[in-house]
């Protein structure tokens, strides 16, 4: 028995090595770089928190963080809401479920560098939705958020919700399928209106799938990069800059790896700060069940 356990541990070694050296190791390496005065190449000196002070004196970085907050709140809420709505509707209309599931899920299987381009066309006022509706005979119609300083970020919310809602739908659909049929029957016998059943019984029962979906969406928020690059390149001006793009720009475009590392460290810490309560709640829930 004991030797079997030993062999099991042996089999886990490559995985442990990868996790420790590649993931943890490179994270620590980034933190180390963020405390140095490196520019194009790593420099082995120590300048304390100077890079972080510089980072938080940078207007563009602050704007990126603020954008990420607004984007994250809108994106997570809208994806959960739309995903839930689609799951409920599909669950009630089973005849088309197979085909519709595919339609709602296909965006998630596609690279955003490609689909983001289609969205950029659609949202482009000169030849997208705005122009099409104008040609239909509404010459005053305006939908130019993509080039609007105050609204460019919302176009990224629209396009990424389109991508993520199908995933939420699939997760919640699995949860809905797991609900005891007796609950639906009991509600029907009692004559409880559908909205009340969903609000007071079904949604609370779906807490775990909702938490899973929220966790996946939150990681997508922190990683947001490809959609911005494909749709707005951070513009107009800095209207849709996000931290991951700031980091990539400083890492490769501006050859300032210390600033990039400092940004990456801040991003990881804030992601942990947001995710820690969610993970803690899940662990507690799992313990309560067993």
């Amino acid at each position: 028995m004991k030797s079997l356990l030993g062999r099991a541990h042996l089999a886990l070694l490559p995985m442990a090595f990868t996790a420790l050296v590649c993931y943890l190791g490179s994270t620590l390496w980034s933190i180390r770089i963020s405390l140095s005065s490196s520019h194009t190449f790593p420099v082995d000196d120590f300048v304390g928190l100077a890079q972080y002070r510089r980072l938080f004196a940078n207007e563009r970085w602050l704007h990126s963080l603020q954008n990420l907050g607004v984007y994250g709140a809108l994106f997570v809420l809208a994806s959960l809401l739309l995903g839930f709505l689609l799951a409920v509707l599909i669950e009630r209309e089973v005849r088309l479920a197979g085909g519709l599931r595919l339609v709602f899920l296909y965006p998630y299987a596609m690279s955003f560098i490609a689909t983001g381009l289609a969205w950029q066309w659609l949202l482009n006022p000169q030849f997208g939705i705005q122009e099409t509706v104008r040609r239909w005979g509404h010459p005053q119609f305006r939908f130019d958020w993509l080039v609007d300083q105050d609204r460019a970020l919302y176009t990224i919310v629209i396009a990424t919700v389109w991508q993520a809602a199908g995933l939420v739908m699939a997760i919640l659909l699995a949860g809905l399928r797991g609900i005891d049929p007796d609950i639906w029957n009991a509600a029907r016998l009692e004559g409880i209106p559908a909205w009340r059943l969903y609000a007071s019984v079904i949604v609370p029962m779906l807490a775990a799938p909702f938490a899973t979906a929220a966790l996946l969406l939150l990681t997508a928020v922190a990683k947001l990069y490809d959609a911005v690059v494909a749709m707005t390149q951070g513009g107009p001006g800095t209207a849709s800059e996000v931290p991951a793009k700031f980091i990539m720009d400083h890492l490769f475009g501006r050859a300032n790896i210390a600033q990039a590392s400092a940004g990456a460290t801040v991003l990881v810490l804030s992601a942990l700060l947001v995710l820690a309560p969610v993970l803690y709640a899940r662990v507690r829930a799992a313990r309560a069940r067993s």
Binding site: V103, F104, Y106, P107, T115, A118, W119, L122, W162, G166
Partner: peptide, 9 residues
């Protein structure tokens, strides 16, 4: 609505 970007592409 979900198929619109695919249609356009």
């Amino acid at each position: 609505g979900f198929l619109l970007p695919l249609y356009v592409m």
